[in-house]
Write a protein that binds this DNA or RNA. Structure first.
Length: 261
DNA sequence: TTAAGAATAT
DNA sequence: CATATTCTTA
């Protein structure tokens, strides 16, 4: 077998998690608070391979019990957000149903209703996504152009057709407010009810100190398996937003591009 | 080394 | 808000 053969195969293998692993969105989403808890190293947690303890980046100092009280530090440095295929899908859905017109970072963020997600997160992602779309219509039409070399993430979620051509069609407001962007309601919401799903996904991927880093996609694919250890700690709280996700948030996310005009 | 995400600048 | 550039980090 040639090297190329191995290459694409390896990529294939790493790229596509089985549908079973792809579906349970709830499992790959950890709340910041929970992750914080992990960072604080609970005494009873084996945490096999996916634990990169405390680096210098976000030391526990920042997360240390904020004496300010209940406000979970909104101005704190959040860990680098990882755009999982699931999150990206939510993003795409939001944009698709907002229409290009209303698809601005702020509204997208609100519609996604992902706790912990900032406008900057969305803006940055949107910027790259637009570049990706531009790439698609440029190189995609010419024929055998495999644009899927880099943009693994974007390729993971199908691009709604109307993203590609400037057919000013759904520009008018046909967006359906059949749901309420709960994110916009979480002003003075203390502790309950305001958590949709949490996006902060700590990429503590196994990193061999010698420079061999495990592929992130692989990590994502296998993450659900590692959850087991974490669940002992997070089960109750996971249930909180998992329930929210599968029932409440699901309706929020029910919006789908099934609308072909 | 590459690439994703964030920061920053225009 | 969009986009371009640069920086950091996984």
């Amino acid at each position: 077998m040639r090297e190329e053969d191995y290459n694409w195969f390896a990529k294939w293998e790493e790229e596509l998690p089985s549908p079973e692993e792809l579906i349970p969105l709830s499992q790959s989403l950890i709340t910041p608070d929970l992750a914080i808890a992990f960072d604080l190293r609970s005494p009873n947690q084996p945490q096999p391979q996916t634990t990169p303890p405390p680096q210098q980046t976000n030391s526990s100092a920042e997360f240390a019990v904020d004496s300010s009280g209940d406000e979970p530090a909104r101005t704190l440095k959040r860990p680098r957000l990882v755009w999982t295929p699931q999150l990206h899908k939510r993003f795409v859905d939001a944009v698709a149903h907002l229409g290009i017109k209303n698809a601005v970072p702020k509204t997208i963020m609100q519609l996604m209703s992902v706790d912990g997600l900032t406008r900057e997160n969305v803006a940055s992602h949107l910027q790259k996504y637009r570049l990706y779309l531009k790439r698609m219509q440029s190189g995609g039409g010419g024929g055998g152009n495999d644009v899927g070399e880099s943009d693994h993430l974007f390729a993971s979620s199908p691009v709604p057709t109307h993203f590609l051509h400037p057919t000013a069609r759904q520009s008018s407001d046909h967006f359906v407010p059949s749901f309420v962007p709960i994110a916009s309601l979480q002003h003075h919401q203390p502790q309950f009810l305001h958590r949709q799903i949490s996006a902060v996904n700590f990429t503590s991927h196994a990193n061999n100190s010698n420079g061999k880093a495990m592929d992130q996609s692989l990590f994502l694919a296998r993450q659900s398996h590692h959850q087991q250890q974490q669940q002992v700690l997070t089960r109750s709280q996971v249930a909180n937003y998992a329930d929210d996700l599968e029932q409440g948030a699901n309706t929020v996310l029910t919006l789908f591009p099934t609308r072909e005009n």
